[in-house]
Write a protein that binds this DNA or RNA. Structure first.
Length: 405
DNA sequence: ACTGATGCGTC
DNA sequence: GTCGGAC
DNA sequence: GTCCGACGACGCATCAGT
C-alpha cells in the first residue's frame, strides 16, 4: 500500500508535466479515486493549493523567510548555493527538491500527517516554534514530498491546477453533474467537504450554513460599451463599480457578520452592524464597504487605514466613516437565491431594505441601459461621481460583468 | 521600549 | 487589483 | 472567452533583535 502523500506527489508531477486540462482532470480524478475518502478529501484541498478549507481563517504564518531558514538548516548548504538554486527554479518548492538530501527516501508520510502538521503550525506562536515544527515535517519527507509541502504552504502549487479543475475532477470521479459540484463547493467553501458529498451522492443536500461565507461571484472587465451588449443581447442592468471592499453580510436574529472575499471575518467596521441587525429575517447580502463622507466616496487608501486593525480606534472610526452598499441578495429566510434571476433577487432586496435605508447602509442604485450611447453616458457620470466604473449585469443571470473604460 | 523584517490581506 | 500567455 | 500564473502598491500586526 503506497503512502498517500507519495501518491499525491506523483499525481502533482504528472499534472505539472502536461498542459492539457482534460489530462490534468483525469489524473487528479484517478488519484482521488485511489484514496480512502478521508485522504481524498484532504488531497482535494491540497490540490487546490490550500492548507485548510477556504472558509477557514487559519493561516500558517510560514512564509519565504521561514522556508529559507529551514532549507538552509536541513541542507547545510551556504546561502549562495541556495540563492543559485532558487534563481534557477524561481520557486521555493523546486529549490527544496534539489537541495534536500536525496538519501531521504520518505514515502512514509501520509496526507493525514501533513494535515496534522498544518494544524499544529497554525496553532504555534512565534517564528522560532514554527521553524522547529516545519523542519521536523521536512525531515520526514522525501525531496519530492518537501517540494509539494512547500508549495502548499506558499498557497500555490503552480502546476496549472486550480480549484476549478479540482471540481471537474470530483465530478468526473463520481460521474456527477459539474454544475452540482460547483454549486456544492460554492455553498460549503470546502472542496474536501464537496468531495465527500459527491462520494455519498449527496451533492444536492449541500446545506448553506449561515455565518459560513459562501463563494463570491467575481466580475470580468470589459473594454467598451459595445462589448457589454455582446454579452447581453437585450439590455443591461448597470450599477456603479465601487472602489471599496467586497463583503458578504450574514444576518440572523440580532447577529450580523461580515466576510471578505477571502472569507475572513471583517471585524473592523462595527458601525455597520446595527443597521443590518435591525432588518427583518435571515439573509445574506453581497455588497461593498465604502469609505463615504458627505455623500462622496473617499479614496481606497483611506479605507485601507481601517483594515487589519485588531482594536478599533474611535478617532479613526469617526475620521473615516463607512457605508455598506448592498447590491445583491444571495439568501433569504431559507431560500438560497443563487439560481434565482437577478430581477427577482433585486426585487426582494429592495423590499428587504425598504424605502428608508439606514444610516450606514444603502441600496446600490441600478439602472437599465439599452443602447451603447446610454451606457457611455452612464459610465461618464459614474466616473464624475468618483466611482471606479460600472458593473453591468444581465437581468436574467447571476454573473456580473464590469466595464472599466 | 523601540525598530526592522516578515507575513498577510485589501485592491 | 493588473497583465500577458496558453488553450 | 476562460483559465492560470506572475506581478505591484499599500497598510497593519507580530515577533526577533537591539
Amino acid at each position: 500500500m503506497i503512502a498517500s502523500m507519495r501518491r499525491f506527489v506523483e499525481t502533482c508531477e504528472a499534472v505539472s508535466a502536461t498542459t492539457k486540462k482534460t489530462e490534468k482532470v483525469r489524473l487528479v480524478s484517478k488519484c482521488l479515486r485511489s484514496l480512502p475518502v478521508d485522504d481524498a478529501a484532504r488531497a482535494a484541498i491540497f490540490f487546490a493549493g490550500h492548507a485548510f478549507p477556504r472558509w477557514e481563517e487559519r493561516t500558517l504564518a510560514v512564509g519565504g523567510s521561514l522556508i529559507w531558514q529551514a532549507l538552509e538548516a536541513l541542507s547545510g548548504l551556504p546561502p549562495e548555493r541556495l540563492s543559485q538554486t532558487y534563481r534557477r527554479y524561481g520557486d521555493a518548492g523546486g529549490m527544496a527538491e534539489e537541495v534536500l538530501s536525496s538519501d531521504n527516501p520518505g514515502g512514509e508520510l501520509t496526507l493525514r500527517d501533513v494535515a496534522a502538521t498544518f494544524e499544529n503550525l497554525a496553532a504555534l506562536r512565534g517564528s522560532t516554534q514554527k521553524l522547529e515544527a516545519f523542519k521536523q515535517l521536512l525531515r520526514r519527507a522525501s525531496p519530492g514530498e518537501a517540494k509539494y509541502i512547500i508549495k502548499i504552504v506558499t498557497g500555490d502549487l503552480r502546476i496549472g491546477l486550480k480549484e476549478n479543475l479540482v471540481e471537474e475532477a470530483i465530478a468526473q470521479t463520481f460521474l456527477r453533474p459539474l454544475d452540482l459540484v460547483r454549486r456544492a463547493n460554492m455553498i460549503t467553501a470546502d472542496v474536501g467537504a464537496t468531495f465527500r458529498l459527491a462520494a455519498a451522492d449527496d451533492l444536492a443536500a449541500a446545506r448553506l450554513r449561515l455565518f459560513h461565507p459562501i463563494g463570491f461571484m467575481l466580475a470580468t472587465p470589459a473594454e467598451t460599451p459595445a462589448e457589454v451588449f455582446e454579452s447581453f443581447p437585450a439590455d443591461a442592468l448597470v450599477e456603479d463599480k465601487y472602489d471599496g471592499i467586497r463583503a458578504q453580510a450574514h444576518k440572523s436574529g440580532r447577529t450580523v457578520k461580515l466576510f471578505s472575499r477571502t472569507m475572513d471575518e471583517l471585524l473592523e467596521f462595527p458601525e455597520l452592524f446595527e443597521g443590518l441587525a435591525a432588518l427583518p429575517g435571515e439573509f445574506i447580502l453581497d455588497g461593498e464597504i465604502l469609505a463615504w463622507r458627505d455623500a462622496h466616496p473617499l479614496p481606497f487608501r483611506e479605507l485601507q487605514r481601517r483594515l487589519g486593525r485588531k482594536h478599533s480606534d474611535m478617532w479613526l472610526l469617526l475620521d473615516i466613516p463607512v457605508n455598506f452598499v448592498a447590491f445583491d441578495l444571495l439568501y433569504q429566510d431559507g431560500d438560497l437565491l443563487l439560481d434565482t434571476p437577478l430581477r427577482e433577487r433585486q426585487r426582494r432586496l429592495e423590499q428587504l431594505l425598504g424605502p428608508a435605508p439606514g444610516a450606514h447602509f444603502q441600496l446600490a442604485g441600478s439602472q437599465r441601459c439599452q443602447t451603447v450611447e446610454e451606457l457611455r453616458e452612464t459610465f461618464e457620470n459614474a466616473i464624475l461621481r468618483g466611482q471606479e466604473g460600472l458593473m453591468a449585469k444581465e437581468p436574467g443571470s447571476p454573473s456580473p460583468l464590469s466595464t472599466s473604460s
